[in-house]
């Protein structure tokens, strides 16, 4: 499980995270909701050690990754897959090389085995015959899915999804939602999904959490969310511009 305690991070003049606590059970899919610019991506980057908190701790199965050396944290990262909000595909490589990179770097698989795994994972995200293309010649939604294929190439135990369905058509969104569910069911993956897409959120979530003002202000099952009277959560899921969350 992942246990986040009193995580605080200031970026520039903004206190992005402040005493943020969050627990994610093993095998669970948790969806993190929250207004734009509230620090959801920053939270994910802390969990995989790309950002270092000012205060607080992040325990991955009992190991605190805060203060670990880069070498130690790399051992933890090998169990993770991350989909970046902007896909972050390596634009000097082909899509196939992108998806196969960690296999090439961290496993002893042969080129043929890597090629097979790459096309399998691309198929999972609904992409076919794109291995030889450069990321620049893909559409935004295709790039997102290629990034997702890269994130799941190594059969990670934990997956961090930063807006997996943004920019996808409704049908493709459903394919991705199914995939997130399947990965959880078949491989027992623990996932954190950041999204603004409420259909997707209800579909994949065992639990939803809302990040606002640097902390998790609400957490509950999809049914609890539907039934809640918490004004902040209500405003968010109803999509209203008036309420406790001020759209500045």
């Amino acid at each position: 499980m992942i246990r986040i305690r009193e995580l605080s991070k200031r970026l520039g003049s903004k206190q992005v995270l402040k005493d943020c606590d969050l627990d994610i059970e093993s095998g669970e899919t948790i969806v993190v909701l929250g207004p734009s610019g509230t620090g959801k991506s920053v939270l994910l980057k802390h969990i995989i050690g790309l950002m270092h908190p000012d205060l607080g701790s992040i325990e991955i199965e009992g190991e605190n990754i805060v203060g670990m050396s880069e070498r130690e944290i790399n051992q933890v990262r090998k169990r993770f897959g991350m989909l970046f909000q902007g896909s972050a595909l390596f634009d000097s490589m082909t899509v196939g090389e992108n998806v196969g990179l960690s296999l090439r770097e961290h496993t002893r698989m042969t080129d043929a085995e890597i090629a097979r795994r790459v096309s399998e994972r691309l198929e999972w995200v609904g992409l076919k015959d794109v291995e030889g293309m450069k990321p620049a010649s893909l559409s935004g939604g295709m790039r997102k899915r290629a990034g997702l294929a890269r994130a799941i190439a190594m059969d990670p135990q934990f997956i961090l999804y930063d807006e997996p369905t943004t920019g996808l058509d409704p049908i493709m969104s459903d394919v991705i939602n199914q995939l997130i569910r399947d990965l959880q069911r078949r491989m027992g993956v623990t996932s954190i999904v950041v999204t603004h897409d409420l259909i997707s959120a209800y579909h994949v979530a065992d639990r939803l959490a809302m990040l606002h003002g640097g902390k998790i202000v609400f957490s509950g099952t999809p049914d609890q969310v539907r039934a809640t009277t918490d004004p902040m959560v209500r405003q968010f899921i109803e999509g209203s511009s008036t309420g406790p969350i001020q759209p500045v």
Binding site: K45, I48, G49, L50, E70, N74, Q75, R77, K78, F80, M82, F84, A88, L89, F90, L101, S102, E105, H106
Partner: peptide
């Protein structure tokens, strides 16, 4: 960041 997240220095 993506490289680092993939445990590649």
């Amino acid at each position: 960041d993506a490289l680092r997240a993939m445990a590649i220095n």
